[in-house]
Computed example of a mutant assay.
Amino acid sequence: MCWRSGFVATQVFAAEELVSLREFPEISREELFRFFTLTPADIAFFAPGRGRGPEDQLGLSVALCTLPWLGFVPNKVAAAPPVVVARLADQLKVDVSQIKEPSAPVTWKPRPSRHGVCPWSRTP
């Protein structure tokens, strides 16, 4: 929000751009190895000893590895390319066949605050 003029941008992206931001693009072999290779510190961070189950480990690793690749995390993290999921699952030693589908989709929506509608909240 521009505080002096009171102008709020409501439409930043065109409809086609919004669709592309919600989905994962095709990934090359080079990008797969560059962006989806976990370091030992990454693996320790995602470790199940921190209270994270297989779904959490995989979802968090997909999100954090996608951020430097695309510059953002698509809305549908669960729709990551299968090759990405397989690569991360192998590094994390997670059995992908044991992971359940989410029961309810998670969406992000603005919530009111003292300063307008800026913070985002996660809702199931």
Rank of each mutant, 00 (worst) to 15 (best):
V117H: 12
A44Y: 05
G116Q: 01
G49C: 02
K76S: 10
T37R: 03
R50Y: 13
P25N: 06
A79L: 10
A41K: 14
L18Y: 02
R114D: 08
A9I: 11
K109P: 01
C118D: 10
P124L: 14
F45C: 13
V12W: 07
G51S: 11
T66D: 04
F45D: 15
L21G: 00
F36H: 07
G116R: 00
V84C: 11
E16H: 00
P74W: 02
D90R: 12
G71M: 06
F72G: 02
A14G: 08
F36I: 05
T10P: 04
V73H: 10
P68S: 02
R4H: 11
Q57D: 09
S97Y: 14
S5Y: 12
P124V: 08
S5R: 14
A89M: 03
L64D: 02
A104R: 14
S103C: 04
G53Y: 03
V19Y: 00
R22N: 04
G116Y: 01
S97A: 15
E31K: 04
F45A: 15
G49Q: 13
S61A: 15
G59A: 08
F7I: 14
P102Y: 05
D42Y: 02
R122H: 07
M1K: 04
V106L: 15
V94H: 04
M1F: 00
V77M: 07
K109H: 11
L60M: 15
A79I: 01
V73R: 09
E101Y: 05
Q98Y: 13
V73N: 09
L21M: 09
V106C: 12
G71K: 07
E101G: 03
N75Q: 11
I99D: 00
L38P: 01
A78H: 12
S20A: 12
S113N: 06
I43C: 07
V12K: 00
N75W: 12
